[in-house]
Design a protein around this nucleic acid. Sequence first.
DNA 1: CTCCTGAATGCTAACGTAAACATTCGTGCC
DNA 2: GGCACGAATGTTTACGTTAGCATTCAGGAG
Lengths: 335, 335
Amino acid sequence: MAKAARGPSIRDVARRAGVSPQTVSRVLNDFAGIRVATRERVLEAMAELNYRRNLTARTLVTGRSNTIGMIGPDIPAIGPLSSLHAVERAAREAGFHTLLTSTSPSPDDVAGALEFLLGRGIDALVLVAEHRSVQKAVDAAIGELPVVHLLTGGRPQRTSISIDQAGGVRAALEHLLALGHRCIQHISGPLDYSEAQLRRDAFRDMIFSAGLEEFPNIEGDWTTDSGYAAGQQLDPRATAVFSANDQMSFGLIHALADQGRSVPGDVSVVSFDDTPESRHSLPPLTTVHQDFEAVGKLAVKVLVARIAGEHAPPNDLIVPWLVERSSTAGPRASA
Amino acid sequence: MAKAARGPSIRDVARRAGVSPQTVSRVLNDFAGIRVATRERVLEAMAELNYRRNLTARTLVTGRSNTIGMIGPDIPAIGPLSSLHAVERAAREAGFHTLLTSTSPSPDDVAGALEFLLGRGIDALVLVAEHRSVQKAVDAAIGELPVVHLLTGGRPQRTSISIDQAGGVRAALEHLLALGHRCIQHISGPLDYSEAQLRRDAFRDMIFSAGLEEFPNIEGDWTTDSGYAAGQQLDPRATAVFSANDQMSFGLIHALADQGRSVPGDVSVVSFDDTPESRHSLPPLTTVHQDFEAVGKLAVKVLVARIAGEHAPPNDLIVPWLVERSSTAGPRASA
DNA sequence: CTCCTGAATGCTAACGTAAACATTCGTGCC
DNA sequence: GGCACGAATGTTTACGTTAGCATTCAGGAG
């Protein structure tokens, strides 16, 4: 067994400094009304003993952990990972820390992750790119805990910080329409993810209201490989593709290149995410910018307010915008 | 103030089941020697009250948290993020959970992160892609805690799971040499990261022992943008580039394309990481495969063993290999 | 019937901290 | 000089759990 190796406690410090444990606690928590000499004696004792405050005990007694739990998806896609990372940074700046669990969509896994976080006394919960099974489990288990759903794009019943998925899709499609495209196919993410479904639905709405022909949806799984596969089943009449994330776009463009078709010469591609890679791919992608950083910051801001007991602000919608680069152009005359 | 909203405790369950708290605890921890009827009564009571075990209290009394702390870099690069993610998954499978903190290289930040993790009673620590300032802080603060340094590629003094950076570089350069390249320039990562330095050093050794001319090192910061910038300062005589990660390679290739130079026609590019994007970029990258998943798994395995008090196995070196794709070819006759 | 034994369960203390209340002490005022 | 008062510090208790020891109980041996 690993030895317990407990460090010095507040009591040891108190003894060494010749004060009561409570006084040490007060110094730790920056209470007013401690004589300067006393405080210094305590600080000195802490330094000498190499004292480290025990967050576990503190959490136990206060019921507050200053920790935000995060549940993310199991997949190593840059999008969700960026969001998680952004939350982590924003939380840190706000004086909070994060407890990260990723989980496969299996209900058992989700329940386990939730169990761990809740048992750990988190003060709030952030859900990133949730699989739908996660939503259900969370709704069942959460009591008063502040929760933010990130990026889902529209869950009116609870607080959520979302990118306005429909708005982003609209910007992307308007761009393609303005270029003159009439045959546009969609490569969606896995439809059991909220984002994927929202984007697909918004796409359909746009196609419908523009009176265009609807091509069958090709469902990918967010990965570059699935984008490549999608490129192989693309309808030959399509002059433009709206792809649900950048990674799939890369795969798609690769597949087209292998078929001897160029982007945007033969096919235009509009994408979603604006990951760092999309700025420098060949061609650089025209893509909807998702400001992960802003989302993370806003999420933490909302949560901190709710933790402090302030009334939760209404759902916040971050509006993404289209970054026009070189993967789109007008359709060929021949099309 | 947020209401405490404490859930039911072991005591509430005990009262309801008509047993002592200790018996409930025994049921929770799967002790032998509980009458079946009693156990069932307890389980029933837990279900009725929707009881959730408090990990905080448990940690406080046992001194073990079943949690592995992770410190990662502040940057949202896919490489380190993948590693963190892999550790998280491996830990979960081993019954552990993870506490993630990322930190800027500033000593204060690092100290704060460490403080948080240690105060939280983590059982072990994983360092991913450490900035050198992290190493120093960790060495100072860690006592008996099992630590694994991930991906640094050679820290003999402590247990570390590393990718054999030098081996990877060797594979990459041997490939270029075999193709006939003699003018090879390096784009390194920021040299205050261990990996960046190890790769740069291995590169130099290879160049030296092959008796080739040494071009000045161009130092990037792992991002695609810095790769693009590097592409603009490339020595015109270089027929091949060894770039320290995939993201910078993408930027580099973009810059070359903007100059009207093609890859691999005019310049060959060998890279490091084998991220999912590299399979489908144009051209697909020849790159050194880093098995983040394997590294994560191995790290957790080592840590679990050390937590259990077994003697730490010696440093483990994972050997990466070169994946040959289409970004390399022989030098032009004109070169 | 009593005693012993082992199985099942209960009781008490402890983990390290902070909240709430209690006490001490110095100081200024009458 | 005595008193009141606020500032500084101390004492007690609780948070939810588990370790360690104590107790109860049933059943078999003598």
